[in-house]
């Protein structure tokens, strides 16, 4: 079964220099293992092809049923230098929620 992250998670993003961070939070704790299994750093790097020029790091916060991603070299040089309308990567959170993952089973 294919699930869009928007349906099982919410997210917020922001900037630190040229690095964007995206916090991805499971809407229910039982969805957290799905995020953990399917939303890997490699998968996120591939998802953001053309936006993220550097590496992607992933951190786990099981206590909040959440993952934190750092997307390096993703903001066109950083908040003040960038020519992007979304200078601080505020909408990269919803860009991540576009991702579709393949899950074998999901309890609703």
């Amino acid at each position: 079964m294919r699930v869009r992250l928007l349906d099982i998670a919410h997210a917020r993003s922001g900037d630190k220099g040229d690095t964007a961070n995206i916090g991805l939070i499971a809407r229910k704790p039982e969805y957290y293992p799905l995020l953990l299994r399917h939303v890997t750093a490699e998968r996120v790097k591939e998802h953001f092809r053309g936006i993220c020029e550097g590496t992607v790091e992933r951190y786990e916060l099981e206590n909040l049923s959440a993952l934190n991603f750092l997307l390096h070299e993703s903001l066109g040089g950083g908040g003040t230098k960038t020519l992007r309308n979304d200078a601080q990567g505020k909408t990269l959170s919803s860009a991540l929620l576009r991702m579709v993952i393949d899950v074998d089973e999901i309890r609703r």
């Binding site: 917020r12 939070i25 934190n68």
Partner: peptide, 16 residues
Amino acid sequence: EATVKEQLLYEIGDPR
């Protein structure tokens, strides 16, 4: 919990 979680994750690096 959800609104607080979103802010907790805002502009952080390594959460540890």
